[in-house]
């Protein structure tokens, strides 16, 4: 039963591929996102850029606010719980969320353990900076992975680094001889079976999206070129001058990421992009949360 549930949960992520998942804070934003072509929305009280600005402890959103967004749209609705916060995850499951993001964007509730996601019926997506983190989260039951990036910065550099590292490690694992896999699994800190899966299939066992700092159609296309199967856009849309137009352009850029002429057209006249801060200018490094 658990295995069947995990398969179904992995399958939902497969349906999201080639799509854009957008952060929204109100039912109105959710409708704008759906109309612009989002394949799912992430319901949260504050987008990462504002979480960063506000400081303090950042927690799961009010279930009433999430339910308002569930009622407003027909596409899947995701929401974030704190790393290791089993009770927040149970609450999100109780309101039938489509995906829980056990997210480093919120303040971690547990600085050692992640949630045992195999104990849940609803699916989880988790952030990862490299192959080891990704496979550890999958071993805990995550049915989808995303790069961590550095949320709320509008700076894509970390997402690029994480995706590059992950893809390079996947290629490396794929090239090892079978008797080297035991030691590789030990070095990565992951179960041998998952290392073997990557070795044989040259990919993660679940869908892998890019997240963190994506602000333009070109950023989204870049992540797809680097091997992402879809893109999360957090602060980049509703912190920009013309959210509707930017959102729609990013959706089209993900579909046609290989056609530079299309990308050029999509990049025109989008108005003000989110201002952004360079990752080295910030004090709070969210990607360090939860390894």
């Amino acid at each position: 039963m658990i295995n069947e549930r995990f398969e179904l949960n992995k399958n939902l992520a497969q349906m999201l591929k080639g799509g854009v998942i957008m952060d929204v804070t109100t039912p109105e934003q959710a409708k704008i996102a759906e109309a612009a072509g989002a394949c799912a929305v992430m319901a949260l009280e504050r987008i990462p850029a504002d979480i960063r600005a506000a400081g303090g402890v950042s927690r799961m959103s009010d279930p009433k606010m999430i339910k308002g967004i569930q009622d407003a749209v027909s596409i899947p609705v995701m929401a974030k719980c704190r790393i290791g916060h089993i009770a927040e995850a149970r609450i999100l499951e109780a309101i039938e969320i489509d995906y829980i993001d056990e997210s480093e964007v919120l303040s971690p509730a547990d600085d050692k353990y992640h949630i045992d996601k195999t104990a849940f019926k609803v699916p989880f997506v988790c952030g990862a900076r490299d192959l080891g983190e990704a496979l550890r989260r999958i071993n805990e039951g995550a049915a989808m992975i995303r790069t961590k990036g550095e949320p709320g910065t509008g700076d894509v550099v970390q997402a690029v680094r994480h995706m590059r590292i992950m893809q390079a490690e996947i290629r490396r694992l794929g090239s090892l001889s079978p008797d080297e896999l035991f030691d590789a699994a030990k070095d990565l800190g992951v179960p041998y079976e998952l290392a073997l899966y990557v070795h044989e299939n040259k990919k993660l066992p679940v869908v892998n999206f890019a997240a963190g700092g994506v602000a333009t159609p070109a950023d989204a296309a870049l992540m797809m070129m680097l091997g992402a199967e879809g893109v999360f856009v957090g602060s980049g849309i509703f912190k920009s001058g013309d959210p509707e137009k930017r959102a729609a352009a990013i959706v089209k850029a993900v579909t046609n990421f290989e056609d530079a002429a299309v990308l050029a057209e999509l990049s025109e006249d989008l108005g003000e992009a989110m201002v952004g801060i360079n990752a080295q200018e910030i004090e709070l490094i969210m990607e360090e949360r939860g390894k």
Binding site: Q14, G18, G19, G37, C39, I75, A248, V251
Partner: peptide, 15 residues
């Protein structure tokens, strides 16, 4: 294919 009909439908029209 499977996916979100709203997304595919919108892209079919706009492209």
């Amino acid at each position: 294919p499977g996916g979100e009909s709203t997304v595919q439908g919108k892209l079919l029209a706009e492209l």
